[in-house]
């Protein structure tokens, strides 16, 4: 109990120290035009919020993430489950998928722009590409790690085909699929910012680069902080969803 409290206090102190450094070092150690103090950045965030400007960028970024990640999940998870279950299918598609996995989403962005234009579609596809691989691979691994005795047990009670998939394969692989979704979301984030820096007129990534180019440095930091909080929020929401969906994993004997 006591050490837990002490850790808490020190944790808080570390955060405060960092924030204090940001507040008081600009103008003394670093150029405050390039790194304005925290209070000024917070003021800018507040101003952007009251002007409804920040919300607009957040919403657009959120739509892009949700689209790319959603499609990656809808295609990646079932495909991964199939690959995990049917060994021969996995062997057949393994080579092209391994090759595809190695190609960075950013490297393909010029290709997507050529094929799908510079609009929303190519942005959604690049996010999809980044999020797809971890979801696919973790779904495959999830199925491969199912205890064979559970499969025998389900089959002995007449499960097969769809019922085996719904009752056994999907729930057994769920924790692994969730790991894939969280990894996919964080990759999607990285790629989102890059995509919004090329040929976009809105979105948090656009806001970062555009503010820098027009020398609105506090706005740039406001956008970066928003990106950070946005990412943390999404990760927490996914963790929460995961805990809800795999409640049985959190329980242990005696709990």
């Amino acid at each position: 109990m006591k050490t837990a409290f002490r850790t808490r206090v020190l944790q808080l102190a570390a955060i405060l120290l960092l924030l204090a450094a940001w507040q008081f070092l600009p103008g003394k150690v670093v150029n405050q035009h390039f790194l304005p103090p925290l209070s000024e950045v917070l003021k800018t965030i507040f101003a952007l919020l009251t002007a409804n400007e920040l919300q607009r960028h957040i919403l657009i970024s959120l739509k892009r993430i949700a689209g790319g990640l959603g499609v990656a999940l809808v295609i990646g998870a079932p495909l991964g489950l199939l690959m995990g279950w049917y060994r021969e299918f996995e062997q057949i598609v393994d080579a092209p998928l391994q090759a595809g996995r190695q190609i960075s989403a950013l490297a393909l962005f010029p290709v997507f722009i050529l094929l799908f234009g510079i609009g929303e579609l190519s942005k959604a596809i690049i996010i999809f590409w980044a999020a797809f691989w971890p979801i696919l691979l973790n779904s495959t691994v999830g199925v491969k790690h199912i205890d064979p005795v559970l499969i025998r047990s389900a089959r002995s009670m007449g499960a097969g085909g769809w019922s085996l998939f719904l009752e056994l394969i999907a729930p057994a692989a769920a924790p692994s699929i969730f790991t894939g979704i969280r990894l996919g979301a964080s990759y999607a984030f990285m790629v989102l910012v890059a995509a919004e820096m090329v040929g976009a007129d809105a979105g948090l990534g656009f806001l970062v680069l555009n503010s820098q180019e027009t020398f609105k440095i506090p706005e740039m930091y406001a956008a970066i902080i928003t990106l950070c909080l946005f990412g943390l929020l999404i990760n927490h929401l996914l963790l929460y969803a995961e805990k809800r969906a795999t409640r049985w994993k959190q329980l242990r004997a005696g709990a």
């Binding site: 005795v149 559970l150 025998r152 047990s153 389900a154 002995s156 007449g158 056994l168 795999t246």
Partner: peptide, 18 residues
């Protein structure tokens, strides 16, 4: 496999998510 036989395994083989 069929439901005219019920199997009990050494490893219990219960479904942990149920």
């Amino acid at each position: 496999p069929g439901l005219n036989r019920g199997i009990v395994f050494q490893e219990y083989a219960l479904f942990p998510w149920k």
